[in-house]
Amino acid sequence: MIQFEYGCPGSLMETTSILRNNPEAVLLAGGTDILVRIKQGMIQPAMLVDIKSITELHGISSIEQNGLRIGALTTLTELVENDLIRNRCPVLSAAALSMACVQVRNRATIGGNVANASPAADTVPPLMAFDAELEIFADEDIKRVPIGEFFTAPGETVLQENEILTAILIPDTARKAHYIKHTLREAMDIAGVGVCVSRKTQGAPDPRVVLGAVAPTPIRVPAAEQFLSEGKIEEACAAAVDAARPIDDVRASASYRKDVIYPLVKRASYAVFAR
């Protein structure tokens, strides 16, 4: 592995000041992704800034009536095991459990999974299906960005240098959701296609249909959502297929990805709309 320096700031202010002085520095959270990328020579940071000592990045709490605030450093294992998440947003626990292995889940963080901006990130479709917002520390202040506006391309987000993802906010957990991760292997695999469908548990369903791994970023499919709100599941599936822009890669071909979106959206929709 290439050589780099290591910093371990205790606060967000200190972190941004390190980042300002070290343009080649990269944030280190769980490290399960970044250390692999360094090993493979994909990135060559001059410094890793370990943010795990910053207390406000940790913790899961209730906000407002039905909301949740999930600190960016919440590990995938915490998502799996935490009672607030399990009770109020079980789909997020399930998505986290589907990822990697326990050794990695014990280290990997939700903030890392979101900020790395993989089109196949498993926590993202559920978060998008809950209209999550991202809390970002910027210019000594906190701003909020809807998760749907966060991703710009594979590995790219609107996050500026010197900005830090601090928490994920789920404004209203009163939704029923189902995530299906389609993989070749039953574990230790990355989604070939990910589908999350959600609906409000009370009142009009206001559904969400989110697809992962079939476009440069995870995508919502408003047309499919519209069909679902009209109870037209087959049409919603077709709309989801139309919206996908998958590629061929080692995990699946584009045409196969297109082929399975239909049944997966159908299954997720039935799971959510079943009485």
Partner: peptide, 11 residues
């Protein structure tokens, strides 16, 4: 081992 997929316990 992510993309060359030998079976895991779950497979």
């Amino acid at each position: 081992f992510t993309d060359y997929k030998i079976p895991t316990t779950m497979d």
